[in-house]
Design a protein around this nucleic acid. Structure first.
Lengths: 208, 208
DNA sequence: CCCTTCAGTGAACATCCGTGCACTGAAACT
DNA sequence: AGTTTCAGTGCACGGATGTTCACTGAAGGG
């Protein structure tokens, strides 16, 4: 059954297979060290067929960055959803982050690697996306009553600190795979850190 | 003029040249994507001569990690030196960090890349060294009067937060090379973040 | 002075790499 | 029914890769 497969659908299917293959290979190596031929072999197509879908490995990487951050925005939405009681916002946020790291493990791994070691274009794209994230978080923070008299700059700086800590947490969790005790400790650490930062924020007054 | 060169000295010289060449190549790519032949060509030796000094590119990487962290310990010492007046400890620390990032640019770049994308052994070595760093910082923090009633765990967690933020700052500064205005903003951001964290710490009480 | 040690040589190998080019065959359009 | 489009094929190429092996020649120890 599954008879009528249109041409565009077939193409899209192969494209997906290429993206998945690259993601899988990224588990063990970095994009810069992955060959077009490896990807093709994994997909089950001949190397030259790759060019029907992407100009280069770097272009493939950019597509993967886009996909990865779509999934991250879903995460953001998950965090915002539900009551924004400041009391358990920390536990909720960390919980959602950890869940998404598990569900989207391959994407997180890919981003973590390529953020530091990918082709320049890919690195820039990731940096840009993380920056957008920080800005989003900053506007969220601005809505909290505690940040009444904060300057926009201080909000951005705080947001950067939080995002940095969460990125680091995600990376640590990725490298703690298969050791639930270690992961549990990392989760607890992330929560404590967020609380410490929050205490700092509550007692902060923007400069004169 | 520079006549008597002993054999061990010659060997050490070539070894250095190999390390420097790898460091230089790491500026543009990651270790995993650098070939033994590229390194040899850059040094000006035949590929097989490489094996007289290192078993593999990964072994070379481990040697570079060791060197890089020796330089980082110098940085730590610089920070500790001088009066530890809590008032300007933030400015001093960030200043020293920025200076070292400039002086040891190649090493910082290498560590930043390989931390995420290097061969597993190299990644582990870097992670381990950063962990040692956190522990050192934790014992320093324990000496401050403000952390009187803190648990050892909370000290470690705070230390991790600070180190994470500083690593992130270093990486940002590296990618802001040649844009002094951007760098200046990053430095100011790092200072503000440290102060925010400090305010949080001063108002923190370890759990019951 | 002879003999050993060993950093560096140079050729050879099998294997991988990206990419160009002419092609095929089925789907889609006219 | 005939024609066009185009994802995927198959071959070929020039070049780079890691590693092997036998070698050379100068330093250094006896």
């Amino acid at each position: 059954m599954s008879e009528p497969i249109s041409r565009v659908e077939r193409k899209e299917r192969t494209r997906r297979a290429i993206l998945d293959a690259a993601l899988e290979l990224s588990d063990e190596s970095t994009l810069a060290a992955i060959s077009l031929r490896q990807v093709a072999k994994q997909v089950g197509i001949v190397p030259t067929a790759f060019y029907r879908h992407f100009d280069s490995i770097e272009a493939l990487g950019l597509a993967l960055v886009d996909e990865a951050f779509v999934s991250l925005r879903t995460m953001m939405r998950d965090i915002r959803r539900g009551d924004p009681a400041l009391a358990d916002i920390v536990d909720r946020s960390v919980g959602v982050l950890v869940d998404h790291v598990h569900e989207q493990r391959a994407y997180f791994l890919f981003i973590a690697r390529e953020r530091a070691a990918g082709p320049p274009g890919v690195r820039d794209a990731i940096r840009h996306q993380i920056e957008l994230f920080e800005r989003e978080l900053a506007t969220d923070l601005a809505r909290l009553p505690a940040t009444d008299r904060w300057t926009a700059e201080d909000l951005r700086v705080l947001s950067n600190l939080i995002v940095t800590a969460m990125v680091s947490t995600a990376e640590s969790i990725l490298s703690a795979a298969g050791r639930p005790d270690v992961e549990k400790q990392l989760v607890e650490q992330a929560r404590t850190q967020l609380r410490m930062v929050l205490v700092g924020a509550l007692n902060w007054r923007s400069k004169p």
